[in-house]
């Protein structure tokens, strides 16, 4: 399939769905090959998302997708092309193996892609931690990791002729597979609901201004009162571990465009603000008048969140 664009999918855990990736790839006007790695249902989802061709790398052994990185990389490198994927750990692990096999540059969170003749093209994406945006000219295929091309909530495939039955899918374990010796010993499902930040009209987001994990109940109460979703800044999800990682907003996390974004106790580092550029109205509640968020919000409430948030929740009700 000459000039194919690859869509790499590893499971439902990412912040970009298979159908968003396929829609993004399709917008480039090239045939779309889904590289499905891991469990068999990942391949099924990719086929349903409208890919023209599906390659499945996995088996029934319960090995994690990472075990099949070399197999997937070898297959893609044999027919090099642009690769689009999400940012889940397995997405990144396999995308890196593909980049190594193709000698390809990696661009994270690209915002625009122009495909030229052959494998050349122009890719625009953040650089220097989000301070600037660079457009780089490539003569060979590039691996794009993280949201690219398809806006959050984009419609499924559309226009793709393929269906699960038509797509080319290896019938079972690959006979020539050489999986890495990596086994999954256990998986304890996480509690709580899966985040759906991309489609929420109102997102209430908590930062380090909260003094204790229990206090996040204040933000949750407001989110529930407005029918919105609860999100957070990166330190709450990673350093402190108070919130699941799929709920943090930032260049490296969720990039969202809600009607209203309410940032509570969030200082507003570049990395965070890069995730909410598309928000229509940004509200900041912060006790520090000099925090960067105060000049990056439409409506600014400088004060104690412990007094202000309950008052706003009460007013909404």
């Amino acid at each position: 399939m000459i000039g194919t664009v690859y869509v790499l999918v590893t499971g439902p855990g990412g912040t970009v769905s298979a159908s968003q990736l396929v829609a993004g790839a399709r917008s480039l006007g090239r045939p779309v090959t889904a590289v499905a790695v891991g469990a068999e249902d990942v391949a099924g989802d990719a086929a349903l998302a409208g890919a023209d061709r599906v390659w499945w790398f996995g088996d029934q052994s319960g090995r994690p997708p990472e075990a099949f990185a070399a197999d997937a990389a070898k297959a893609v490198a044999a027919e090099p092309g642009l690769v689009l994927t999400g940012r889940a750990p397995a997405d990144r692990a396999i995308a890196g193996a593909i980049a190594a096999a193709m000698t390809a540059p990696v661009v994270v969170c690209a915002t625009a892609v122009e495909v030229g003749a052959g494998s050349s093209g122009l890719v625009t994406g953040p650089a220097a931690g989000g301070l600037v945006e660079q457009t780089v000219e490539y003569a060979s295929p590039v691996v794009l990791v993280g949201p690219a091309l398809a806006p959050a909530g984009a419609a499924a495939g559309g226009g793709g002729a393929a269906s699960a039955t038509e797509a080319e899918m290896p019938p079972g374990p690959l006979s020539e597979a050489h999986p890495y010796p990596v086994e999954q010993a256990s998986l304890t499902p996480a509690g709580g609901q899966k985040a759906n930040l991309g489609e929420a009209a109102v997102v209430v987001s908590a930062g380090r201004g909260f003094k204790a994990q229990e206090d996040l109940a204040l933000a949750l109460a407001l989110a529930e009162a407005v029918g919105g979703e609860l999100a957070c800044s990166r330190p709450l999800a990673e350093g402190l571990g108070w919130m699941p990682k799929d709920r943090y907003v930032g260049i490296s996390g969720n990039q969202i465009a809600p009607e209203v974004y309410i940032a509570i106790g969030i200082s507003g580092q570049l990395q965070h603000l890069g995730g909410v550029r598309g928000a229509k109205t940004v509200v900041a509640v912060n006790s520090d008048a000099s925090a960067p968020i105060m000049t990056a919000a439409d409506l600014v409430l400088c004060g104690d969140l412990y007094n202000l948030i309950p008052a706003i929740t009460a007013a909404v009700k």
Partner: peptide, 9 residues
Amino acid sequence: SIAEGIQTL
């Protein structure tokens, strides 16, 4: 810790 839960490999 991944989106699917706590994974041991």
